[in-house]
Design a protein around this nucleic acid. Structure first.
Length: 269
DNA sequence: ATGACGTCCTGCCTGC
DNA sequence: TGCAGGCAGGACGTCA
């Protein structure tokens, strides 16, 4: 499940590989994977920059074009060819004068958008956790009036851009905050801990080039290293790393949340 | 504005 | 051994 650290790692690798290259041709294996626009527009255009916007990968080209990729659940953007030469899950191949970019996606929830640079496909994207505007006041303003659970607020991309289901659980565990806590019941201390934990967990995960929990691959086909550092996600019934109490799994808004009921108690306010 | 829920999609796992 | 059904979740659209 690619989240900010995984998308960041892919962006950095792809950026190094393809910046300055020119798109020559392309091959689409599954038409619906192109969500908007046509790759025809991009032939003979040169790639100028690769940027991460939340979990979107934004590839800027000459001609004022933008090629945006979102990996969703099982998407992969590979610079090295996939292991099997004819891989049934490769949905699109873009050939440049320096080599090919492969978009591979088992469940086809992700996709590609070709748009004018000024009309990107993302809507109402929140602040990036690594941007200067992301501070305790911002968190207080956005979370402090809300009735829904803090776990759901962390997943809301119009609040903070880039956090997904895995890191939301990890962040709340480090902050010692129960995932069910409504935003408006977060104390000033909670907000402070939350702000610190968001940056700390994401920084460590970026340094490890992300987490490969199931399907994620870096653009060179390798796995991220953060999996071994997960403390609660996927650890139902395992002992808490702090207190040895069993980690619990609950479902919030249809998504799994993992937490320690002792280290992240309810009514801790 | 807020919040709840449906939709997409396929491999994998569980239970009978 | 085989098969049916549930599960995984990111972003967006719809509805109350």
């Amino acid at each position: 499940m690619p989240e900010l650290p995984e998308v960041e790692a892919v962006c950095r690798q792809i950026e190094t590989a393809i910046t300055g290259s020119t798109i020559m041709t392309f091959r689409i294996e599954l038409a619906k994977i192109i969500r908007q626009g046509s790759l025809d527009l991009l032939t003979r255009q040169t790639i100028q920059a690769v940027k991460r916007i939340g979990k979107f990968i934004a590839i800027e080209l000459t001609g004022d074009y933008l090629l945006t990729v979102h990996l969703r659940m099982t998407g992969q953007l590979l610079w090295e060819p996939p292991e099997k030469l004819r891989d049934r899950y490769v949905r699109c191949v873009i050939e440049t004068d320096r080599g090919s970019i492969y978009y591979r996606d088992v469940r086809t929830l992700g996709g590609l958008w070709i748009t004018p640079a000024g009309q990107p496909p993302w809507k109402n994207i929140g602040v990036d956790p690594f941007a200067g505007e992301f501070n305790q006041s911002y968190l207080q303003n956005r979370f402090g009036s809300r009735a829904i659970a803090v776990k759901q607020l962390l997943l809301d991309q119009t609040m903070i851009a880039g956090i997904g289901n895995i890191y939301a659980s990890e962040i709340l565990f480090q902050a010692g905050i129960n995932p069910k806590t409504p935003g408006r019941l977060l104390s000033k201390t909670d907000i402070s801990k939350l702000h610190h934990s968001i940056l700390d967990v994401l920084n460590h995960a970026v340094a490890a080039k992300g987490t490969t929990f199931r399907d994620f691959l870096l653009s060179n086909g390798r796995e991220g290293d953060f999996h071994e550092f997960l403390r609660v996600y996927g650890h139902k019934n395992d002992p808490c790393p702090n207190c040895s109490h069993s980690i619990e799994r609950i479902v919030q808004a249809g998504r799994s949340s993992f937490y320690c009921p002792v280290c992240q108690p309810e009514n801790s306010h």
